[in-house]
């Protein structure tokens, strides 16, 4: 099983450790992982800012780089959601590409979904000790159906206790460029999220999208709060 690993630009640039944690999880699940060396961005920033031409160009690049793999897996609900649920619409009027795009979309997975439902990972390699609260990032939850998968994996870890926060499914306020364009509203929404995290009593908030992590961590620190902010891959692989 040849699994193309899509690092995502944010992980590539900001927190590569998430990428390596994800790699080790995929390998632990028995996947033959291939990392296309020229990969960059799925095009979502352009897409949500109305720049369709650049989005299409980047989508073609992703299709080109990953279509020979059996699967495309990304440590992000947002980027995998972009490929699985939005690429198709971009090529609706382009018969030369629509088939290829649809094929890639159908084999694109978010990391935890892939670990649980395709690799059927039995044993989680990491060894994390502590109380965790899980934030359901929007695209993972509402585009990729990621809800039970990360929790099922965490349940396999003896040292982990999960205590759910209130409104775990409510947006953290990141929203890509929204966080900068309407930064004040974004920070207020993030602050509500931080309040729920703190109230949960957990010593770490865990989630599956780096964009949301940067937003939540940034707001927590500005509040003077030291709650850890970890990617689910880091916890599962034991490399935070």
């Amino acid at each position: 099983m040849r699994v193309g690993f899509f690092v995502t630009c944010l992980v590539d640039l900001m927190r590569p450790s998430i990428g390596f944690a994800a790699l080790s999880l995929l390998e632990a699940g028995g996947a033959d992982v291939y990392v296309p060396p020229k990969q960059t961005c799925c095009g979502q920033p352009c897409y949500n800012s109305g720049d369709r031409a650049d989005t299409i160009a980047l989508a073609k690049k992703v299709v080109h780089e990953f279509e020979d793999c059996d699967y495309l897996v990304a440590p992000s609900g947002s980027c995998s959601g972009m490929i699985r649920t939005h690429y198709g619409e971009l090529f609706a009027d382009d018969p030369a590409w629509s088939g290829r795009v649809a094929k890639l979309a159908s084999k694109t997975y978010e990391l935890t979904d892939f670990l649980v439902n395709v690799l059927k990972l039995e044993r989680v390699p990491g060894d994390y000790r502590g109380t965790i609260t899980y934030h359901d990032s929007c695209a993972g939850l509402r585009e990729m159906g990621v809800k039970t998968q990360p929790r099922a994996l965490l349940a396999k870890m003896n040292g982990v206790r999960v205590c759910e926060m209130a409104d775990a499914e409510v947006c953290c306020g990141f929203g890509g460029t929204f966080a900068v364009k309407l930064g004040e509203i974004s920070a207020r929404i993030a602050d509500n999220k931080c309040q729920h995290i703190v109230t949960s009593g957990a010593d770490a908030v865990v989630l599956g999208d780096l964009g949301c992590m940067l937003n939540i961590e940034g707001r927590l620190r500005r509040r003077g709060d030291a709650t850890k902010v970890l990617h689910i891959a880091e916890v599962l692989a034991g490399e935070p």
Binding site: G183, G218, R219
Partner: peptide, 24 residues
């Protein structure tokens, strides 16, 4: 150029080396 972000939030700094270069 990113005050929209940092006026009310910190921005966690990047690790310093990209995934692509480390992987390579």
């Amino acid at each position: 150029f990113g005050s929209g972000w940092t006026d009310e939030r910190d921005m966690p700094a990047p690790a310093g080396r990209t995934f692509r270069e480390q992987y390579k």
